[in-house]
């Protein structure tokens, strides 16, 4: 049973905290990965809850020390409190979860109905020769656990097909990251994000090219990129061109970056704007979608 005893947990954290020196030379206090894991087990809480309490007491979970001061303690707490749903765990999704797990997003909902096969190996970081035919959702959850045990992960081996059915899985998410590989499901996912009134970070790739944008509930969204859903093909140029690893990893990383900025309220987000790239001639531009 989870123990709802904030002050007891707080004093247990204080006892484990040790003096340390921050990278700029200022003294601070830290708590190690092992101590966070130990306390999480002791109090039957996910590790991120221990880490939030540590930060609130001014104690740095040392695994995140290099996030500061690019992020503030309040920013890190916002990331730890956040729940992000990543749909599609191929090339984009693998890159997204790698970044989000390391950054310390507290909860991840991972959705993909597919299994890894040999054609994934050229670009999907989660695919490995010894994981062929394994469910992408399971492999992704294992990867997150290996990177950061403090993250609460739920994995669903499931394809997103209809807004009604899939909404339930995502209803307490703060945002959705679209890492899908077809246009049809992207429109379904956008419908869900709009129904839930949460932002959708979306990227797509083909060959050496890709584009990325952030769609808020009030925005026109995917229709501005692909035209009306009924006229959009189910697959795009990737069917003819395939996808090269660098553009896939780059666009996934940029999706994670947009997610982190939305969750912390930092920086400028690509809402109503689109980043387009072609790595073959190093074109990288920001377009106004308005």
């Amino acid at each position: 049973m989870p123990v709802d005893n904030g002050s007891e947990i707080r004093s247990a954290i204080e006892k484990r905290a040790v003096d340390a020196v921050f990278q700029d030379g200022t003294p601070c206090r830290k708590i190690s990965v092992a101590d966070v894991t130990d306390l999480a087990g002791q109090y039957s809480l996910p590790g991120y809850r221990i880490e939030i309490q540590a930060l609130e007491a001014g104690i740095i979970p040392w695994r995140y020390v290099r996030n500061f001061r690019a992020l503030s303690f309040a920013d890190q707490i916002a990331l730890l409190r956040a729940k992000v749903c990543v749909v599609g765990l191929g090339g984009l999704g693998g890159s997204v979860i790698e970044n989000l797990a390391r950054a310390g997003i507290g909860s991840l909902i991972l959705i993909d109905g597919d299994l890894f096969d040999e054609t994934n190996l050229n670009r999907q970081f989660l695919s490995q020769e010894d994981r062929l035919r394994m469910p992408k959702a399971q492999v992704a959850a294992e990867r997150v656990n290996r990177i950061n045990r403090s993250v609460a992960v739920s994995a669903h081996q499931h394809f997103v097909r209809s807004p009604g059915e899939d909404r339930k899985l995502m209803e307490d998410a703060d945002l959705i990251v679209d890492c899908l590989d077809n246009l049809e499901s992207r429109f379904v996912l956008e419908r869900i994000a709009k129904d839930l009134q949460i932002p959708l970070v979306t990227a797509a790739v083909a060959g050496s090219c890709g584009h990325l944008t952030v769609i808020c509930p009030e925005d026109e969204g995917l229709e501005r990129i692909y035209g009306p859903p009924e006229t959009a093909p189910s697959k795009g140029a990737e069917k003819a061109l395939g996808c090269l690893s660098p553009i896939v990893a780059m666009m996934g990383t940029l999706e994670a970056s947009e997610a982190m900025k939305i969750l912390t309220g930092r920086g400028t987000v690509l809402q109503n704007r689109m980043l387009v790239a072609d790595l073959m001639d190093n074109t990288i531009e920001i377009l106004a979608l308005g």
Partner: peptide, 26 residues
């Protein structure tokens, strides 16, 4: 010139025109 346009948009000298096909890979 970095702003979304459509097939009917007029072009003038010096413009930079970019065109994407539908792209959906991940």
């Amino acid at each position: 010139n970095n702003t979304r346009a459509d097939l009917d948009s007029l072009l003038k000298s010096g413009d930079r025109l970019g065109i994407f096909p539908p792209v959906g890979g991940g």
